[in-house]
């Protein structure tokens, strides 16, 4: 077991207080994230309502195969993240490291597939601007602006999540966690699951609606 006394920061009285504070901090941060994405979801709803037909047509150009593979990758990564948390709670360091690395691996896989998809999107002139495809009605371009911004911001969040988990791996490597102290694993998991949940919404809104 790591020296758990050392892990309590000086502003806190004891470990439970520190754990509660960091957990509440992460939940509060996630609340801000919901509002951050919320602006995009609102814009999406407004324009979906205004340009129902153009959005339905534009939406059919998203590459559902990539989207579905990515959904599978990310949902699986949430599963492995949960297993990592479980291992941390049990104080088993090796499985913890393994599941964390697996989670990172799946996250990187998501970004790779997303990159391939972006490449193909650009190839099909689905990047908004002067070269945007002429097959779609003009407001269809707004769908694609939102597609790029929403998935782009999501990917940045996922990349940040991978960075976060890399730090956690490093901490686990240094044997900083125990069944008594593993809160960083838990709150990183909260963030990871959040990024996953956002994707579930994006998948539904960008890939699935009006797909006959």
């Amino acid at each position: 077991m790591a020296n758990s006394h050392e892990a309590v920061a000086e502003q806190f009285d004891d470990m439970p207080q520190q754990i509660e504070a960091s957990t509440l901090g992460m939940w509060t941060f996630l609340a801000t994230e919901i509002l951050f994405f919320g602006a995009l979801f609102l814009a999406y709803i407004v324009y979906r309502h205004t340009y129902a037909q153009a959005f339905a047509l534009a939406g059919r150009h998203t590459l559902i195969l990539y989207g579905t593979i990515n959904t599978a990758l990310l949902l699986t990564s949430s599963f492995t993240m949960s297993l990592a948390i479980h291992s941390a709670q049990e104080g088993k360091n090796k499985p913890l490291l393994g599941f964390l690395l697996l989670t990172i691996f799946l996250g990187c896989g998501f970004l790779l597939v997303k990159g391939l998809e972006y490449h193909e999107d650009v190839h099909e002139h689905l990047f908004p601007g002067a070269h945007f495809t002429r097959e779609l009605p003009a407001p269809g371009q707004i769908f694609w602006v939102l597609y790029w911004v929403m998935t782009g911001v999501h990917s940045i969040h996922l990349a940040a999540g991978i960075g976060l988990l890399a730090v956690i791996v490093w901490m686990a490597w240094r044997r900083r966690f125990s069944s008594y102290y593993h809160n960083p694993v838990l709150i990183s998991g909260l963030y990871w699951h959040f990024v996953d949940v956002i994707w579930v919404w994006l998948y539904a809104l960008l890939y699935l609606i009006n797909r006959h």
């Binding site: 509002l35 994405f37 602006v145 911004v149």
Partner: peptide
């Protein structure tokens, strides 16, 4: 601060785009 500011942040991103 926590609940309103993120909306401004995203709005400014969209404006810049």
């Amino acid at each position: 601060l926590v609940m309103a500011t993120p909306v401004l942040a995203m709005t400014l991103v969209l404006l810049s785009i």
